[in-house]
Each structure stands twice: as structure tokens, then as C-alpha cells.
């Protein structure tokens, strides 16, 4: 038996928003420690990894590990039937999980709606992502990162990210001209959500597709801050941390042969 009740149902809506443009079908892997998802986009250039801890649910029950194969478009349609303030409960029979039950309860518990989503078999390749010491780790306001991606898309489909001790610089070069945005580290102790920090082992310069980065910024409503981790010739990690877990996006860089 699997059951996970999330008091903040709106969080599930936001999570779904942050993956559904990148991935159409995905396995939600459920275990006694929580729910996780790992999936590549169709072009296999980007990867999304989601982790929700069991403690974030009340209650959470999962007797044995199993996977829920979900079409995210279908799940999204059903999730639209939930109110923003609703408590959402996910239920499935782990021995023959051919459907996922979603229960939406309003705050006064007067209205309860129940939906069944048909599940599917998804043959998905999982990649092993090792713990990495990145050359550069940058924390910045998530809304700022979203704006930079949106602005630079006006100029080019690619962005070069340069990180040094003193600044992170985003540069785009296109047919109409060029553009760049430079951010310096700031420490706003009274407003930590607005701070920018750079931890640097060595300077890095990498080029990425703005289309994917822009897609990742759908995670912006999940967290005030975003973490960017970069190493030479390695995929970029973009992480949004939540109270209940995290969503991580990985993007392969553009590199010379």
C-alpha cells in the first residue's frame, strides 16, 4: 500500500509545472524514504531529478519500493481539478499499480474529490550521477536567473557563463548584436533570499542552450534562491531547494570536439 498526503497541495502543482515541459512520461519511484523521479528530455540533452522526502508528507506510507509510470500531461489535467489550497493525497496499490488515486480535500474538509489516473509502463534509463566537487557554485535569487535567461534569449539561443571570484557573467552573441549581464556577490544578511554568493575553486567558462535554461526556470516558484554548479566540460547543475526536497536540472554543455 502506498499513500502520501501533502498538506500544501499547491506545491505538487508547482512541481508538475517545473517538469512537464521537459519530460512527457516519467516514473515516480516510491520507497519508504520518499518519492523520486529521474528523467531525460526527448533530445537527451537535459535531465531532471526530483526528490521528495517522506517526512514532508503527513502521513507517508510505502511498504515496498515500486514505480508509478505517469503521463505528465494527463496528470497535469487532473491536477488542474485541485484547488490551490487543497490537501492532496496520492494512493496506489503497490502490488498491482495500474492506476494512481488522487484525492483533493478543501481546507474545511467539506468538499472531497477523487480521481483515478491510469498508469503506464515506462522503460526509462537511469543515469548514475556521482557526487561532484564543482569548480564554481553560485547562489542567486531565482527570479534574477529567470530574468537573465529571458532577456538574453532576445539576443541568442546560447549563453556563455563565466564565473570568477568577483562575478558571474552571462554573455549572448547573436545576429542582431550582443548582450551580457554581470552579477557581483552581495551579502544581504537581513534579506538572505536576495543574496548572491560565489564559491570558487577555479574559474569556469561554459556555453549552454538558453532554451533549456529557460525551461529550468519553471522551477522559480519553488524557491527564492537557485544554485548553479559548474565544472569545466561537465553538465551544469541548476538546483531549486524546497522544505520537502529538491528539484535538480542537469544540462550538457556545448563543447568543442
Amino acid at each position: 500500500m502506498f499513500e502520501a498526503r501533502l498538506t500544501q497541495g499547491a506545491l505538487l502543482k508547482r512541481l508538475l509545472d517545473s517538469v512537464k515541459e521537459l519530460v512527457t512520461d516519467a516514473n515516480f519511484d516510491c520507497s519508504e524514504t520518499g518519492i523520486s523521479l529521474q528523467a531525460m528530455d526527448n533530445s537527451h540533452v537535459a535531465l531532471v531529478s526530483l526528490s521528495l522526502r517522506a517526512e514532508g508528507f503527513n502521513p507517508y506510507r510505502c511498504d515496498r519500493g515500486f514505480s508509478l509510470g505517469v503521463n505528465l500531461n494527463s496528470l497535469n489535467k487532473i491536477m488542474k481539478c485541485a484547488g490551490n489550497e487543497d490537501v492532496i493525497t496520492l494512493k496506489a496499490d503497490d502490488s498491482s499499480a495500474d492506476s494512481l488515486c488522487l484525492l483533493f480535500e478543501n481546507s474545511s474538509n467539506e468538499r472531497v474529490s477523487e480521481y483515478e489516473l491510469k498508469l503506464m509502463d515506462i522503460d526509462q534509463e537511469h543515469l548514475s550521477i556521482p557526487e561532484t566537487d564543482y569548480d564554481a557554485t553560485v547562489m542567486m535569487p531565482s527570479a534574477e536567473f529567470q530574468r537573465i535567461c529571458r532577456d538574453l534569449m532576445v539576443v541568442s539561443e546560447s549563453v556563455t557563463i563565466d564565473v570568477s571570484k568577483d562575478e558571474i557573467k552571462f554573455t549572448a552573441e547573436g545576429e542582431l548584436g550582443t548582450g551580457n549581464v554581470k552579477l557581483k556577490p552581495t551579502s544581504t544578511i537581513d534579506k538572505p533570499e536576495e543574496s548572491i554568493t560565489i564559491e570558487l575553486g577555479q574559474t569556469v567558462s561554459l556555453q549552454f542552450s538558453l532554451k533549456y535554461l529557460s525551461n529550468f526556470t519553471r522551477g522559480t516558484p519553488l524557491s527564492d534562491q537557485v544554485m548553479l554548479c559548474l565544472s569545466d566540460n561537465m553538465p551544469l547543475l541548476v538546483e531549486y531547494k524546497m522544505d520537502i526536497g529538491y528539484i535538480r536540472y542537469y544540462l550538457a554543455p556545448k563543447v568543442g570536439d
Binding site: 537527451h44 550538457a252 570536439d257
Partner: peptide, 14 residues
């Protein structure tokens, strides 16, 4: 020019 790599170019299957 630079080429867009795939993610599996960097990480091995589990």
C-alpha cells in the same frame, strides 16, 4: 564551433 553534447556523454547508465 561548439557542439551540443548529450547528457549520457558525461554520466553512465545505472
Amino acid at each position: 564551433g561548439l557542439n551540443q553534447k548529450r547528457i549520457a556523454w558525461f554520466y553512465l547508465p545505472k
